[in-house]
């Protein structure tokens, strides 16, 4: 069974991100593999261990996204593919889903596609379900545990009320939560393999599709209003006195 894992390159989670003239700037902060996609890679590798086959990491992005793909290779993915095309510069999540759908079909023999919970730049959390729908596959969102038995996937999914345990045939797409397990570290061999890897780039022509329509736009990006927080340090006296003062002040805020 072949597995695809969709990964995005994003600014590091600790980056100071600001809006400058409606453009997003993260200074010289590094670009990394989307942290949620590390869990997706982990899930894909777990599935591969259970079911065999190859794991292909796919990213839609610019040339630099090859670095994120190399991280996925170092973790143990079999191969990686970059999909890059100038026509995708302003693609929305639905357009990306169309492209990922075409890429997964082109890889061939893919029966499971793994996604991260969300990309930490746009914080959308929808691309997995949209791609699944376009593929005509089942979507299993927020999977916290995955097993492959008798040709079927057995998964646990997290909902507000608790965990749902479900079973389904392939093909299926899934997005994973943190409970899937800590992403494995790149191995020494993996890092060497990734460093030497030639990552093929497919454009839209190679996928045999036109640029898909993007309908959601971000005409304005701004820095959130600065909250004037006057911090009041409660000090002096015994812990008991501090506690009394603190409770008094909190009650005055009328939030309880």
């Amino acid at each position: 069974m072949n597995i695809a894992v969709c990964v995005k390159q994003v600014p590091d989670s600790a980056a100071k991100v600001v809006a400058e003239d409606d453009r997003v700037s993260w200074g010289d902060a590094p670009l990394v593999l989307n942290p949620w996609d590390e869990y997706a890679v982990e899930a894909a590798l777990q599935l591969q261990e259970a079911a065999g086959g190859e794991v292909t990491a796919v990213s839609v992005g610019g040339e630099s996204a090859k670095e994120a793909l190399k991280t996925a290779l170092a973790m143990g993915c079999t191969q990686a593919i970059l999909v890059s095309d100038p026509a995708l510069a302003a693609a929305d999540s639905q357009a990306i889903a169309h492209v990922l759908c075409a890429a997964i079909q082109k890889i061939g023999g893919v029966e499971a596609a793994c996604f991260g919970r969300q990309a930490i730049d746009g914080d959308m959390g929808v691309t997995g379900a949209q791609t699944a729908h376009l593929l005509g596959w089942l979507m299993l969102g927020l999977v916290s545990k995955i097993e492959f038995k008798d040709g079927k996937l057995q998964v646990e999914r997290s909902f507000e009320e608790g965990i749902q345990i479900a079973e389904c045939p392939l093909p299926a797409a899934l997005s994973v939560s943190k409970d899937i397990g800590e992403p494995r570290y790149p191995s020494f061999m993996g890092i060497r393999k990734a460093a030497r890897a030639e990552i093929p780039t497919w454009d839209l022509a190679a996928l045999g599709i036109e640029a898909p329509a993007s309908v959601v736009r971000w005409p304005r990006i701004s820095n959130p209003p600065v909250r004037e927080i006057k911090t009041e340090m409660i000090e002096g006296g015994s812990p008991q006195e501090i506690a009394e003062k603190l409770v008094e002040r909190i009650l005055e805020e009328k939030v309880l």
Binding site: P11, S13, K16, V17, V18, A19, V24, I120, D121, G122, D123, V215, V216, R217, W218, P219, R220, I221, S222, N223, P224
Partner: peptide, 12 residues
């Protein structure tokens, strides 16, 4: 967006 570091106005 960006974990609340920015606000985006979006239209469809």
């Amino acid at each position: 967006v960006y974990a609340g570091k920015l606000l985006a106005e979006v239209v469809c």
